[in-house]
Design a protein around this nucleic acid. Structure first.
Length: 798
DNA sequence: GGCCTACGAATTTTT
DNA sequence: TTCGTAGGCC
């Protein structure tokens, strides 16, 4: 049991679990990755489980990577003690490397750890030939994975051209969303049509049918198919199901609250071999181990359904009450945040009705109170935020920029914050935005590569046939596609026939034939050369490189660099893979979410991190600032009518609060301009009212950023003899020396309340007020001209 | 065939 | 504000 000795008792109980179902309700910061990795290590080491029998599923590549790395370290440590009788860090570098390599080959590599999509894409690459679609569609193992852009263009074609529907009432976006939702709920077109009556639904079902046919014709799958097709395969083919059921004796699922119905089906089929979970105990010689937190379910907009987690006890578990159950463990000890932050988070989430009762218990002391900044507008908010960051850094010199995170509800909010950071020369990085594999030049190169592997891929063919420009235009392509449709062959087949091209393409025939020849030549390379070499050939022979070189702009330079990075990515893939294949490199590219290269750089660079609440899940920072806590923005206006949606917004806020380790700063503005147009008044978010009063300190930063800066300048001119004085007024025409003389931090003596400190100056001129804090009382707002106070110490002079 | 401009729409987002 | 697209013009 030694490997579990550093865990607390609930963690131990979870990690020691051997067979049968177990739900681990893991609050934020309660050490869930620790439990997952320790359980795997325990299964391998203590129960002698074969690594090939374990399937560990996550939702993001990042989570998968982290799990793999931490598991490797844990196993290496364990082996170090077993083999050398000493801790890992006392080994020589050579011994460390040898051990690490052994751990990798013996355990981490044969283990199936990864995202749902990556793991089941892998399964499909093995089993695709055994799949028979109910409608007779087939795919080969060379299938292409379409991303959202590809999907959208395919659907747009179907909706507007094939079906001639009014694009206003059948927006491709909307249709795409509906079909995706059907797929994530495990519904094929007929099932969807049966479940949804009405003319509109009929049309959508028809679009769905045509869409699937089209995907099959392109030998392509979308992301949802990577899960839905395995479900159908395992459901309909008992032989295949038996193989995988036998293989995976132990299933572990991270972030279980984020599973959708289709993913649930996969888990169920693999675990019970198709039986209903409760009626049949025959699978209890194996395990289903799920870890999650219903309070952190924030992805229902993409069909995640946290009731799956809430129903685990009923579905798979013993269904006993919390005190008696042996199939649920709660991890409630939080090792991350101060008691104050947890108090706020617990109070907020208690307002949700749909949840499993759970309280985060602090292991740390109270720390600093939460600061709430009430600002005039989004500019003032951004400015106040920057001041807060600078103040935190001053207070704590050890704090790095990278220890600070700014979270917002929508990406559009980042701009103002960025501008304020730039003005104060604070280094920052924005998480999210354009992904490496979404860049135009990268998508172009990938489209060539996909076309080499999968000749049926018409979307990729159309993308590159005229990139770089070859003088092959709309008309020519229309003629060629029409001919292909009429003859019932693929577009590529038409292109590769010289006669057809001569007839159809007219004056662009020459270009078309040259293009076909280019693809044929490149395709031969796939057999003999490594993926990286093929990538290089494509970039050069297609003319992509020449075109960018000819442009000779900074942007083209950047794009060239990115293409170089693509070659590097292929090289890296080869280095990490035993039998590298271009096909599998393309899969990993399609499923990769982030720009790994940029990520590495950002981690090293010490910068304030800006991101959405969604993107912050799973991360933690010593200092966290939440901005834009306003009705309509957060909670978002689209969620405010619907109680379930409002609860999801609240969970999102809960996620934000629980990211903070030491300091939490909240901000809202009384007016905001989001995209152009008028600045609209805004009310504080209802979530703010749900935080306990005693843990929040209200601050009123004085002024809009623009005015403040202008005044600093003017102020210096006016009172160059007192360089330490700072302006506090709001409007330019009300600069008032009395008010400028007061500043936050000043120490005052009050006739009745004794000594206090000014926390804020707000208002201006005759309406100037001071917020003064006396002892532990909440701050009092005083008029400095009337109140019996006198200054006994200046800010910063202590 | 290719470029330019005007117009409209715009949570959240992993795979 | 910004992005993507549709349609018109050379």
């Amino acid at each position: 049991m030694s490997i579990l000795e550093h865990l607390n008792s609930s963690q131990q109980q979870a990690a020691a679990h051997h067979c049968g179902p177990l739900l681990v309700v893991a609050g934020a910061g309660s050490g869930k990755t620790r439990v997952l990795t320790h359980r795997i290590a325990h299964l391998l080491g203590h129960h002698g489980v074969d690594p090939e029998a374990i399937l560990a599923v996550t939702f993001t590549n990042k989570a998968a990577r982290e799990m793999k790395e931490r598991l490797e370290l844990l196993l290496a440590e364990q082996q170090s003690r077993d083999c050398h009788g000493q801790p890992w860090n006392t080994l020589t570098e050579l011994q460390q490397r040898q051990l690490r390599s052994r751990v990798y080959h013996e355990t981490t590599q044969p283990l199936w750890i990864g995202t749902f999509h990556a793991l089941f894409a892998r399964l499909l690459r093995i089993e695709m030939d055994n799949y028979r679609d109910p409608e007779g569609f087939t795919w080969t193992r060379q299938f292409t994975i379409y991303d959202e852009q590809d999907v959208r263009s395919l659907l747009k074609e179907i909706v507007t051209q094939e079906m001639n529907l009014d694009p206003r009432s059948f927006e491709p976006r909307q249709v795409r969303w509906t079909i995706g939702k059907a797929k994530n709920n495990g519904l094929l077109p007929d099932a969807y049509a049966a479940a949804h009556q009405g003319r509109r639904s009929e049309r959508i079902a028809e679009a769905y049918r045509r869409y699937r046919r089209s995907l099959a014709a392109n030998n392509a799958l979308d992301f949802d198919d990577l899960l839905l097709i395995p479900v159908q395969l395992l459901r309909d083919n008992a032989q295949v199901r038996e193989v995988w059921h036998q293989r995976f004796q132990h299933l572990l699922v991270d972030e279980y609250q984020d599973t959708n119905r289709t993913q649930y089906e996969l888990l169920r089929l693999l675990t019970t071999n198709g039986a209903a979970p409760r009626t049949d105990g025959s699978w209890h010689d194996r395990s289903l181990f799920v870890v999650g937190d219903a309070d952190q379910s924030i992805y229902s907009f993409r069909a995640a359904d946290f009731t799956i987690l809430m129903d685990f006890q009923r579905d798979f578990g013993d269904g006993q009450a919390d005190g008696d159950t042996r199939t649920m463990v709660k991890l409630e000890k939080n090792y991350r945040s101060t008691a104050t932050i947890l108090e706020a988070a617990n109070a907020l989430i208690a307002n949700n009705h749909d949840r499993i009762e759970k309280v985060l218990h602090p292991t740390r002391d109270r720390g600093r109170p939460i600061q709430l900044g009430c600002c005039d507008d989004e500019l003032a908010e951004a400015d106040a935020l920057v001041q807060t960051v600078l103040a935190a850094k001053r207070r704590n010199p050890g704090l790095r920029w990278g220890d600070v995170a700014v979270l917002y509800r929508v990406n559009a909010q980042s701009r103002v914050v960025e501008e304020a950071l730039v003005r104060s020369s604070v280094p920052y990085t924005v998480v999210g935005g354009l992904r490496f594999y979404d860049r135009r030049e990268i998508k172009d190169a990938l489209a060539y590569l996909r076309l080499l592997v999968n000749p049926a891929d018409r979307i990729s063919l159309l993308r590159v046939i005229n990139v770089p420009r070859r003088g092959i235009g709309k008309i020519t392509l229309q003629r060629l596609t029409d001919a292909a449709t009429q003859l019932g062959v693929s577009l590529w087949e038409i292109l590769s026939d010289a006669e057809s091209v001569q007839t159809l393409a007219g004056r662009s025939a020459r270009s078309v034939l040259q293009f076909a020849e280019l693809i044929r030549t490149l395709r031969q390379q796939v057999q003999h050369r490594s993926p990286a070499e093929v990538v290089q050939r494509v970039i050069e022979d297609s003319g992509l490189m020449a075109q960018l070189k000819a442009e000779d702009t900074d942007e083209a330079e950047e794009r060239l660099h990115n293409l170089g990075e693509l070659v590097n990515a292929a090289l890296q893939y080869q280095a990490e893979t035993d039998a590298p294949q271009l096909r599998d490199f393309l899969t990993s590219a399609a499923l990769a979410s982030e720009d790994t290269d940029k990520n590495k750089k950002d981690l090293k660079a010490d910068r304030v991190v800006l991101m959405t609440f969604h993107a912050s899940k799973g991360l933690e920072f010593p200092v966290v600032a939440l901005v834009g806590l306003e009705q309509g923005l957060f909670p978002n206006h689209r969620a405010m009518e619907d109680p379930a949606a409002l609860e999801e917004e609240r969970r999102l806020c809960y996620v934000g609060l629980t990211r903070a380790r030491d300091e939490l700063h909240l901000f809202h503005a009384r007016a905001r301009r989001l995209w152009g147009g008028e600045r609209v008044p805004a009310l504080p978010s209802c979530f703010l009212e749900e935080l306990p009063e005693q843990v929040v300190e209200i601050q009123r930063p004085r002024s809009s950023g623009v005015f403040l800066r202008r005044q600093v300048h003017r102020d210096k001119l006016l009172r160059s003899d007192r360089p330490e004085s700072r302006p506090v007024s709001h409007e330019e025409n009300t600069i008032d020396t009395t008010c400028a003389a007061w500043r936050a931090g000043d120490v005052v003596e009050h006739e009745h309340f004794g000594q206090g400190q000014v926390t804020h100056c707000f208002g201006a001129g005759s309406k100037l007020f001071l917020a003064v804090k006396f002892g532990k009382q909440p701050p009092k707002v005083l008029d400095p001209r009337l109140a019996p106070i006198r200054r006994i110490g200046a800010a910063g002079a202590s």
